[in-house]
């Protein structure tokens, strides 16, 4: 008992760090996955995408940097899979300079690998990054091609078949934002959704999600909040399209370590209080 008491009272923060590292690593190595049922806010976005008629024009905006990749990438992947399976057209862009790399990553990892039959310029296009943050959304409202005169590869925008009938942001059937801050889903809602009555779907980090709940369901069709939201969307996607059962589980695989780490943190809170009361009694 005394050993435990002294251990808790003099607990080095490095032991806590090691505990968390193990709590994450072991389940990851063991591929410990957690089954999840889609919550209403996630299911509603899934259904909104399902309800779009084929060949709909959908913007997929990559508004996140490398620091939130683990949360945001699975969301972008799941959207790309869902949209292409439903034969929609994807217009990929980024409001964040650092988002451009993630856009490429989605094309390389998902579109080129899993959908070799899809044609660049017909089924998907890489518009790339443009500076201007929410101001860019404003400008796109007036003149889309004035801002994007070329695609991300430098090809003239008028030579790209799927850009033919685009003049303003209002020509799109839906905007999906994968984001982690400002500009992000909130700006898409304020500057595009509210103004042009374009349906907006959000997929953001757990921290951001907290601030976006008030916009659902009126201004926001649905929301994936953090890894959990992404994993729920994957569940919805796999149950409808079982072909993604092996490739489409990025977030679910990450949810195992997540759950274990959470339990470890709960334990730490309890231990912290035990040590506090033990220390107080000793005085």
């Amino acid at each position: 008992m005394n050993i435990l008491k002294n251990f808790l009272l003099q607990l080095d923060r490095r032991i806590i760090y090691a505990a968390i590292a193990l709590a994450v690593t072991i389940p990851l190595v063991l591929h410990f996955a957690v089954p999840l049922k889609p919550s209403p806010i996630v299911q509603s976005l899934f259904d909104a995408l399902e309800a779009l008629p084929p060949k709909s024009k959908v913007i997929l905006s990559f508004d996140y940097g490398p620091s939130t990749l683990p949360e945001n990438d699975p969301m972008a992947f799941a959207f790309a899979r869902h949209l292409l399976t439903r034969n929609h057209r994807i217009y990929m862009m980024a409001l964040w300079a650092t988002g451009a790399r993630n856009l490429d990553h989605t094309i390389e990892q998902v579109i080129e690998k899993e959908f070799p039959g899809k044609v660049y310029g017909v089924d998907y296009v890489k518009l790339g990054y443009k500076a201007g943050d929410e101001g860019l959304i404003n400008t796109l409202f007036k003149d889309f091609k004035g801002m994007y005169t070329t695609d991300g590869h430098g090809t003239n925008i008028n030579d790209i078949p799927m850009m033919k009938d685009i003049t303003t942001l209002e020509d799109f059937d839906m905007i999906l934002n994968v984001g982690s801050g400002r500009p992000g889903t909130k700006e898409w809602i304020q500057y595009a959704g509210d103004r042009g009555n374009i349906p907006i779907g959000g997929a953001v980090t757990a921290v951001e999600a907290l601030l976006l709940y008030p916009y659902y369901p009126r201004q926001l069709k649905g929301l994936l909040g953090g890894l959990q939201g992404a994993a729920e969307y994957e569940t919805a996607l796999i149950s409808k399209y079982p072909q993604f059962g092996t490739t489409g589980r990025q977030a679910q695989v990450y949810m195992g370590p997540q759950a274990v780490a959470h339990c470890v943190i709960l334990l730490l809170v309890i231990l912290g209080n035990v040590s506090y009361f033990l220390g107080r009694r000793r005085k």
Partner: peptide
């Protein structure tokens, strides 16, 4: 609520190290 987001970041990094 935020703890969750922070843990995911670490998972991503450890996956990368893997």
């Amino acid at each position: 609520y935020t703890v969750m987001a922070r843990i995911s970041l670490l998972i991503g990094r450890i996956d990368y190290l893997g």
